[in-house]
């Protein structure tokens, strides 16, 4: 056996190990407080916008209800809730986010409220490539006690690549075109949808099955453990 092939046999498993370490799922969260509270309904609040994209909160709001409802919860009508809060002089989410969560309980009768922040919502063009980035923070608080029951953060990126044609000049042109298209109409919504789906339903990280998912409700203690 030559030195080189020996090295290769050693190197490959090490590399594979390294890769495996990268995809190891994070430790499941502790669901003690969540299980204790056992919320049946979620009030989705308009998101706090920590970016310069003024349109981000409304666009984000349109993507948030479904993934959380699909975990088995009653999700309050997001657009109606937003409008009712605005009518009540609370169009600035920071006012809501500073207030006691229990007051939301008094107003809406929710079991839990989902506090959201948009921390990235940007599309950057750098030499023939456009990268679109989003980052969100999710925090579920009890409407009864105000305690945080669950928290998650998701960041997603997308950079379109033109397929290779074998002609370098044509490829360059095609890449310039896809980058320009992405810059003109960034794919924020698919990224937000992916982020929300991952936040809500990743095993051990998202929300345990709620009462509208009868087949799994209170039967997923292994995936969403209490420590």
């Amino acid at each position: 056996m030559t030195m080189r092939s020996l090295l290769r046999t050693i190197a490959l498993p090490v590399l594979a190990l390294g890769l495996a370490a990268c995809v190891t799922p994070p430790e499941p969260k502790d669901y003690s407080d969540f299980r204790q509270e056992d919320p049946h309904s979620i009030l989705v609040l308009p998101a706090l916008n920590n970016t310069v994209a003024v349109e981000a909160p409304e666009f984000f709001l349109s993507t948030i209800s479904r993934p959380f409802a699909l975990r088995g919860y009653y999700v309050f009508p997001a657009n109606m809730v937003k409008s009712v809060l605005e009518e009540d002089g609370l169009s600035d989410p920071s006012l809501i986010y500073q207030a006691d969560t229990r007051r939301l309980g008094n107003l809406f009768g929710c079991d839990a409220a989902l506090y959201l922040s948009i921390d990235k919502w940007e599309s950057q063009y750098v030499v023939l490539a456009t990268q679109t980035n989003v980052k969100f923070n999710y925090e579920l608080r009890s409407c009864e006690t105000g305690d945080v029951l669950w928290q998650d953060t998701r960041a997603m990126s997308y950079s379109p690549q033109a397929s290779s044609s074998g002609n370098p000049l044509a490829d360059l042109l095609a890449q310039a075109v896809v980058a320009a298209i992405e810059k003109g109409m960034p794919n924020y919504i698919p990224l937000a949808q992916q982020a929300n789906m991952l936040a809500a339903s990743t095993v051990g990280q998202g929300l345990p099955a709620g009462p509208y998912r009868e087949e799994a409700y209170k039967k997923d203690l292994e995936a969403f453990p209490v420590r």
Binding site: F59, L61, S62, R66, L70, G72, I189, Y212
Partner: peptide
């Protein structure tokens, strides 16, 4: 499990226009 139809995309469009 829940039928949302095109709730998401139509709400997005409504916010946009």
């Amino acid at each position: 499990m829940f039928e949302y139809g095109s709730y998401e995309s139509s709400l997005y469009t409504y916010y946009k226009k």
